[in-house]
């Protein structure tokens, strides 16, 4: 018997999926509306290259969710960019093997 394929090939795929499903279930957007937006992004990305079903797919998913959340004011582009930079800095200053946290001023 062959080994089962992983459900998500990268942890961030799983995290992004869960975040989107959660926001849908909390009523932030309807799933058909989400799917329509996501399909538009996939189509646009698909003009430039043949998309695989892994990182390419979830990159399009992420871009869509970022746009939807920015439009709704739930997570503005600038705000998200700042927090991303803070996480990046946190990873770079945290010794290998230690848990990574934002400082209190960052988070």
């Amino acid at each position: 018997m062959q080994a089962p394929e992983p459900v998500f090939s990268e942890p961030w795929h799983a995290q992004l999926f869960a975040l989107t499903v959660y926001l849908n279930e909390e009523g932030h957007f309807a799933w058909p509306d989400w799917a329509a937006r996501f399909a538009q992004t996939l189509k646009r990305h698909g003009f430039a290259k043949e998309l695989d079903g892994g990182d390419d797919y979830f990159n399009a998913w992420l871009e869509t969710l970022e746009a939807v959340l920015a439009e709704r004011g739930a997570a503005g582009a600038e705000e998200a960019e700042q927090v991303k930079a803070a996480w990046e800095a946190a990873y770079l200053r945290t010794p290998h093997g230690q848990p990574v946290h934002l400082t209190s001023s960052e988070g």
Binding site: W12, L16, L23, A80, V83, W87, L102
Partner: peptide
Amino acid sequence: SDPALRVKALETVL
């Protein structure tokens, strides 16, 4: 990776 950090950032903000 860059997308992994972007996902983390969204989650933190929300």
